[in-house]
Design a binder for these strands. Structure first.
Lengths: 227, 227
DNA sequence: GTTGACCGACTATCAGACAATCTGTCAAGC
DNA sequence: GCTTGACAGATTGTCTGATAGTCGGTCAAC
């Protein structure tokens, strides 16, 4: 339905330098270039990104609203750290929301969404053996994106995206455990099968269980690092 | 635990003019002074609030992140409108999150939280007969605040606050229906009783039902106005 | 070891300026 | 009459420079 439009969108969203800065900083934090706790000094960011202070500041406000950075008054912004308690709460909420998303996906059974889910699942299986995990992470991200879209609730989608941004760092650690990959794939297949079958309860359960397992790994790693 | 600290906090949060502006604008929108769809012209806001453009803009970015205002590129920010579909989704998510909050309150049974809930419930009963509904609204807001805090999950709390900001306008319309007050009070009592009894399922159910009822009224009113 | 003054590093905020872009209008042309 | 194109006004997007306030650390004095 929106395909024609998007084809005409040559570079219509190039508007707003702020959004570019925002995404740049977001990915810099997500990729670990900026580490949790690190100070983000406005002038340095100006030089690094090559824009004025105004754009930097407004982008930082946005990230602050998302919880990705924390601004200490008269001290400046830092990359948000996450305590073990917060991580637990974050995963609890994620389980709740993703369970809901899975249930709704199973209820609605949008063919396009299911196609995207299956495609990414196959892709994940294909790249699971690679040494470099970035392809796997990309496929998993796409899988989640389809799941969130499929629930048909823009608020759930937005909130889950915010949560996902916050856990990206933790997710990397929980992914590196190679013995987890096999089980993770199996869990995702369970989700997929339940959605395709329209099994609402099963899809919800599978999503919740998947998050709980990922949470257990991530939290253990976090507890080990931050005692 | 935090009581001593908060007593010493003379005016420590007076820092950051931006936050003041933010809350000012938030309440202006919430109270209906700025109506949905209305344009918010930066310079006018500068004059009205009495601060520079920087502060206005950064506060607007924050509100934009919360979904309270929408910025149209090169046109400027407007107070967010809400379609019927979005309102439905918003209430669905609210039911999910508040159900969780109620369940967790019942599980944790923090005496301080329960005290606050009961106090606000009594207060609501006391002012329910008043012509002016602002006292009732205030008590209800406090009740919710205690409920959110009591769930012990900062993310749930933050998200629900954002959702509540978005529905405040709708809530006013659903509140004005005076025949709803009695039932609303009864529903809240059900929630309170279940929490006090530690009945997790009951608390969740009661919260969800309460939201669903409120949603039905609000959505009907919305459909009537925006066909 | 504590107190107090001082300095440097930043942020917080403001004011002014210029370019880019959207909107509406109004006349010209078919 | 309807479309097209040009033009002006309004507003944002962005940058720059400047001032004041605040935090953290240092270092001497008591």
């Amino acid at each position: 339905m929106a395909k024609i439009e998007s084809d005409l969108n040559v570079s219509r969203e190039s508007t707003s330098l702020r959004l570019l800065v925002e995404n740049r900083l977001r990915s810099a934090i997500g990729s670990g270039l900026f580490k949790p706790g690190q100070r983000l000094i406005e002038r340095e960011l100006c030089e690094q990104v090559g824009v004025g202070r105004t754009s930097i500041r407004e982008a930082l406000r946005q990230l602050e609203a998302e919880g990705l950075v924390t601004t200490i008054p008269h001290r400046g912004p830092i990359v948000s750290t996450i305590s073990v308690e917060e991580a637990e709460q974050l995963y609890d909420l994620r389980a709740l929301l993703e369970g809901y998303a899975g249930r709704e996906c199973a209820r609605l059974r949008d063919p396009e969404i299911i196609g995207r889910l299956r495609k990414q699942f196959i892709q994940m299986g294909a790249v699971a053996g690679q040494e470099d995990r970035s392809d796997l992470l990309a496929a998993k991200t796409e899988f989640y994106a389809a799941l969130l879209e499929g629930c048909g609730n823009v608020f759930v989608e937005r909130f889950l995206k915010m949560l996902l941004n916050r856990v990206t760092v933790l997710r990397m650690t929980s992914m590196t455990q190679s013995n987890r990959i096999g089980r993770s794939l199996a869990e995702i297949e369970t989700i997929l099968v339940a959605i395709e079958a329209g099994d609402e309860d099963g899809a919800e359960q599978a999503c919740v269980q998947h998050i709980k397992n990922a949470a257990a790994i991530a939290l253990e790693a976090l507890r080990r690092d931050n005692p």
